[in-house]
Design a protein around this nucleic acid. Structure first.
Lengths: 104, 104
DNA sequence: GTCATTAAGTTACTTTATGTAACTAATTTT
DNA sequence: AAAATTAGTTACATAAAGTAACTTAATGAC
């Protein structure tokens, strides 16, 4: 039986944040808009999954994809207001890790 | 190339929290020590994965397993100090979800 | 005692997610 | 024209998660 007493909004939020790579992608984008390859090199995700996650995060309204029609075309990903609203949370995780996770 | 600039402690913390179910298990245990089956019913995880996660969390020093040699034997899981130190983080996610996740 | 029940956990198997690498398309540099 | 770069996709191998049946141990009904 699944008589869940847990708030569905909380469950949804945890669902987004507990998907592999999403936390790191959001954290990485906190330092400003970036191209696909920059994120890729910074966090070590494969191109395949990065595209997939960015698409998901776009659908959740956390990330925006902007095409700059220069030559060559430049595509940048950035956080929306909703995305930036996760900054305190990320800083919180960062602080917690410094207090509770051992070096190496 | 994976020229990660991300702090390994942060990466480790995200690694724990972004594993499926761990967030919900910790959140559930914030309301006090509980038996395996109570957690199971509350969050809707399968017995197999719950055992696996609880073992992982025990190894991370986040959860303790206590056997009460009563009849019948009672086994309870509870948060350690390290586990409880995640409470502000969890409340943070809860608050965020109430502000930014739509009902339904 | 014997049998059904319950809780914790494991085992075996299916389905889904992730990792890896080769490939396409568009555009630049040489 | 050939080689390189970026964003993204496709195809396939491996790892994680889901499902359900099973084990162990102890209880209560009979």
């Amino acid at each position: 039986m699944n008589q869940s007493e847990i708030c569905p909004r909380f469950e949804k939020a945890i669902g987004i944040l507990s998907q592999r790579w999403t936390g790191l992608i959001i954290y990485q984008l906190l330092s400003g808009p970036q191209r696909n390859c920059t994120i890729k090199d910074a966090i070590g995700i494969s191109g395949r999954l990065l595209s997939e996650r960015l698409k998901d995060l776009e659908q959740e309204g956390i990330v925006t994809r902007t095409v700059y029609p220069e030559t060559p075309v430049r595509i940048e990903y950035s956080l929306t207001e909703k995305g930036y609203s996760l900054e305190p949370l990320m800083k919180n995780i960062e602080k917690w890790s410094q207090e509770w996770i051992e070096k190496e």
